[in-house]
Design a protein around this nucleic acid. Structure first.
Length: 646
RNA sequence: GCCCGAGUAGCUCAGUCGGCAGAGCGAUUCACUCGUAAUGAAUAGGUCAGGAGUUCGAUUCUCCUCUCGGGCUCCA
C-alpha cells in the first residue's frame, strides 16, 4: 500500500502518500491552513503535526482560532519561557508550566535563594523573543522512565514527575516523552506542541509570584512566572486593555473615589468601616432582600455573634472547621467562639418548639454576620474578609418536599439576582464526595436528583463537579457573569443531612411518628459585603437609580435660584428620593463635572426659565440634556425607573 | 501563614547618588453668580507607615514590625 485515506471533520476524504503527516495534510488543503496549523486531532487524540497519519484516521487540523489551538500555543510559549530561563540562569531548575485561562505560567527554582525581579522578566522576555525569531522546531522523543530520570538528572522536580507517572497507570508502556527544541534545552512533556517556535509571538510576561511545589505548603516555595499569550497581536492588545479596564473598576479604588467604604489601618486586615454613602447603597440592597424574603415565605430571626463551645461541638464545626474559626474566649468558666456560620443558631430556633409536618417547610432568614479566620494573605477588600454578613437562610422540610422546595428556591434566587442587573448565570452541581460523608446512598441520590431537576426546570446551564459536595450533602453553586465577562460565585444552595442528625431535630408526621427533617442552607448574595463589591465593579460605580446613594443632584444656575432648587429638592425628598443641592460657589460646568465624576444618575439644573415655568433642565447619566421638563414629569419618570429596579 | 513587590499631604504621584520635603487634584478663605464635564488668587496640610541600627547627619543605607498589592492555599 502506498497511499492512505483520512477523513476530515466535514466528512470528506483525502488520499495522501503513505507516511504523510498532519502537516502534509494541512498543506494539501491550502496554503493558509499550512501556515496556521498548530497541532492535529487524530482519532480523537491531539498530536503533533509531524506525526505520520495512520490509514483511515479521522483528522482535524487545529489552528489558533480554536480553544485547543490556543491552549497549545500557550503551552508551547510556556516551554519557550522555561528555555529562556534555563539558558539565562545557570543552576536554575524547573517544575511545571501549563497553559491556563488567558496564558500560561512556569514554576522555577533558582540557586541559593535568588529571585526574579521585574528587570529579570524583561531580560527573559527578550530571550524568549530571540528563541521565537530563531524558529526552532519542537522535536518529540520518547525514552523509558529510567532513561528519563537520567535525562533530567539535574532537575529533581522533573524526576519526581517521571517517578510519579511511572508509578501510575498514566504511562501505559512505561515510557515518557520529551521535547527538544535546541541542543541546550529539553523539557519533559506529554505534548503536543506547535511545530516550531516561530509560530509563537503574541505574548507578554506579566508577574512573578510564589507558589508551593504541588500546591503543598510543606513543600518548597517555587517562583512562578505568569504570562499571557494569544493568537494575534489584536487579541493580545484587547486582553491587556481588558485588564486595564478591570483595574479601573476595582472596588477598592471605586469605594475610595465614591466615598463608600474605607479600610483604616488601625482596624486590621480585612476589616472595613462603611461611610454614609456606602450604607445608603448597602441599605438599599438589604431592604430589597428583606422585602423579597418577607413576601417569599421566610420568617426573620436574629442570633448572637458568639456561642459556647458545646454548640460548635454538637454542630461538628470544632471537628471539621476549627482552622476557619476565630480563637476562643474564656469567660465565666466557659469557652465561647465567634460564629463562623449561622446554621446552628437557626437549628436552635427550629428546636425551640415541637414541629408538625403541617409547619413545614419552615424558612428562616437572617442577615447574619460571621467571622472566619482567613489567612492574612488571602484577604481582599470586600471580596474576602474576616468578618462578613451572610444573607443566610435555612429551610427545614421533609425529604418529600425537597424537589419542590429546591425548584422554587432556585427561581427565587435567580429572580433576585436579575433584579440587581445580572442576566448570565452558570451553575455547578456538586455530588457526593468519594471519601468520608454522612447519610445513606438513597438519600444522597434523591437529594442530588432534586437539585438536578431544579436546575433543569429553571433552564439553567450547569456543570457537574463529581465528588465536590460537602460531607453533609450535595449542593448547587451559582456563578454570575458581570459586565466585563468575569464570573463571580455568589449564591449557594446546600442540602444537609448532617445537622438535623447531630442536633436530633424532629417533626411529628401525619402518621403520628417522629421524623427527621432535611435542612437546606442557602445564601443568595453569599456575603452582603462581597455582593456590594461585585455590584460596584459590575456597574463600574454607576449604580442604577434605585441603588445610587445620591439619585439626584440639583444645581441652581446662580444663587438667586437657590431657593427654587431647595423647593425642588423638598418635593423630590417628599417623594422618597435621595437628593442633594450644590450652591453656585463653583461655576455650573464645574459642578456638573463633579456630579458626573461621582456617577450620579441625574443632575438637575434650575435657572430663570425654570423658576418662571416650574420646569427643570434634566441631565441624565449617559444621556442627552433635556430643557424645560415639568417637575411632575420628572418625578413620575424617576419613580418608574426606581420601581423597575436594575 | 508562605514567596515576591510596595508604603512620601485626604487622593494620584514626583524627589532626595545621605545635607531644611515637591506638584496636580481635593480642602479652607476671598473674589466671581455663571444654562450643561475643570474661573482666578491666597492659605492650610507631612514624625516621608512604625521601631531599632549605621552615620557628624537617615525620608534615603541595614534589620525588625505593621499595612497594602500580586500569587500559593482556601472560600461567601
Amino acid at each position: 500500500m502506498s497511499e492512505i485515506t483520512v477523513t476530515l471533520p466535514d466528512g470528506s476524504e483525502r488520499t495522501l502518500p503513505e507516511g504523510a503527516t498532519a502537516a502534509d495534510l494541512a498543506a494539501s488543503i491550502g496554503k493558509r491552513l499550512a501556515k496556521d496549523a498548530l497541532v492535529a486531532v487524530v482519532d480523537g487524540e491531539e498530536r503533533d503535526l509531524a506525526v505520520p497519519l495512520p490509514d483511515g484516521a479521522a483528522v482535524s487540523i487545529v489552528t489558533p482560532d480554536s480553544p485547543a489551538g490556543l491552549f497549545t500555543l500557550r503551552h508551547s510559549t510556556a516551554h519557550v519561557l522555561a528555555q529562556a530561563v534555563l539558558e539565562l540562569y545557570p543552576g536554575a531548575t524547573f517544575a511545571i508550566g501549563p497553559p491556563i485561562e488567558h496564558g500560561f505560567y512556569y514554576d522555577f527554582e533558582l540557586p541559593a535563594g535568588q529571585t526574579f525581579s521585574d528587570d529579570d522578566l524583561r531580560r527573559i522576555e527578550e530571550r524568549m523573543r530571540a528563541i521565537v525569531a530563531a524558529d526552532q522546531p519542537f522535536i518529540r522523543g520518547e525514552v523509558s522512565a529510567a532513561e528519563g530520570v537520567e535525562l533530567f538528572k539535574d532537575h529533581p522536580y522533573k524526576r519526581e514527575i517521571i517517578e510519579r507517572v511511572d508509578a501510575s497507570e498514566i504511562s501505559g508502556d512505561g515510557s515518557v516523552s520529551y521535547y527538544r527544541n535546541s541542543d541546550s534545552f529539553v523539557d519533559l512533556c506529554r505534548g503536543p506542541h506547535v511545530p516550531s517556535t516561530g509560530r509563537l509571538g503574541h505574548f507578554a510576561l506579566q508577574k512573578v509570584a510564589g507558589a508551593y511545589w504541588r500546591g503543598d505548603h510543606t513543600r518548597p516555595m517555587l517562583q512562578r512566572i505568569y504570562g499571557t499569550a494569544w493568537a494575534s497581536k489584536k487579541d493580545l492588545e484587547e486582553h491587556l486593555h481588558r485588564l486595564a479596564e478591570a483595574e479601573k473598576r476595582d472596588h477598592r479604588r471605586l469605594a475610595a473615589e465614591l466615598d463608600l467604604v474605607s479600610w483604616p489601618e488601625e482596624l486590621g486586615p480585612g476589616l472595613a468601616v462603611w461611610h454614609p454613602k456606602g450604607v445608603l447603597v448597602r441599605k438599599g440592597m438589604e431592604d430589597y432582600s428583606r422585602e423579597r424574603h418577607a413576601t417569599g415565605g421566610y420568617q426573620f430571626v436574629y442570633s448572637p455573634h458568639i456561642a459556647k463551645s458545646v454548640l460548635w461541638e454538637t454542630s461538628g464545626h470544632l471537628d471539621f472547621y476549627k482552622d476557619g474559626m476565630y480563637p476562643p474566649m474564656e469567660m465565666d468558666g466557659a469557652t465561647y467562639y465567634p460564629k463562623p456560620m449561622n446554621c446552628p443558631f437557626h437549628v436552635m430556633v427550629y428546636r425551640s418548639s415541637q414541629r408538625s409536618y403541617r409547619d413545614l417547610p419552615i424558612r428562616l432568614f437572617e442577615l447574619g454576620t460571621v467571622y472566619r479566620y482567613e489567612l492574612s494573605g488571602a484577604v481582599h477588600g470586600l471580596m474576602r474578609s474576616r468578618g462578613f454578613t451572610q444573607d443566610d437562610s435555612h429551610i427545614f422540610c421533609t425529604i418529600e418536599q425537597v424537589p419542590e422546595e429546591l425548584a422554587s428556591l432556585l427561581d427565587f434566587v435567580l429572580s433576585v439576582l436579575r433584579a440587581f442587573g445580572f442576566d448570565e448565570f452558570q451553575a455547578k452541581l456538586s455530588t457526593r464526595p468519594p471519601e468520608k460523608s454522612v447519610g445513606e446512598d438513597a438519600l444522597w441520590d434523591r437529594a442530588t436528583e432534586g437539585l438536578r431537576s431544579a436546575l433543569e426546570r429553571a433552564g439553567l446551564s450547569y456543570v457537574v463537579d463529581e465528588g465536590g459536595g460537602a460531607f453533609y450533602g450535595p449542593k448547587i453553586d451559582i456563578d454570575v457573569k458581570d459586565a466585563i465577562g468575569r464570573a463571580w460565585q455568589l449564591s449557594t444552595l446546600q442540602l444537609d443531612f448532617n445537622l438535623p442528625e447531630r442536633f436530633q431535630i424532629e417533626y411529628i408526621g401525619a402518621d403520628g411518628e417522629r421524623h427527621r427533617p432535611v435542612m437546606i442552607h442557602r445564601a443568595l448574595f453569599g456575603s452582603v459585603e462581597r455582593f456590594f463589591g461585585v455590584l460596584l465593579e459590575h456597574f463600574a460605580g454607576a449604580f442604577p437609580a434605585w441603588l445610587a446613594p445620591v439619585q439626584v443632584r440639583i444645581l441652581p444656575v446662580a444663587d438667586t435660584h437657590l431657593d427654587h432648587a431647595h423647593s425642588v429638592a423638598a418635593r423630590l425628598t417628599a417623594a422618597g428620593f435621595r437628593v442633594d443641592v450644590v450652591d453656585a460657589s463653583d461655576q455650573l460646568g464645574k459642578r456638573i463635572r463633579n456630579a458626573k465624576v461621582q456617577k450620579l444618575p441625574y443632575v438637575l439644573v434650575v435657572g430663570d426659565d425654570d423658576v418662571a415655568n416650574g420646569t427643570l433642565g434634566v441631565n441624565p447619566r449617559g444621556g442627552e440634556v433635556e430643557r424645560g421638563v415639568p417637575l411632575d414629569d420628572f418625578v413620575a419618570r424617576l419613580a418608574a425607573e426606581v420601581a423597575e429596579r436594575r
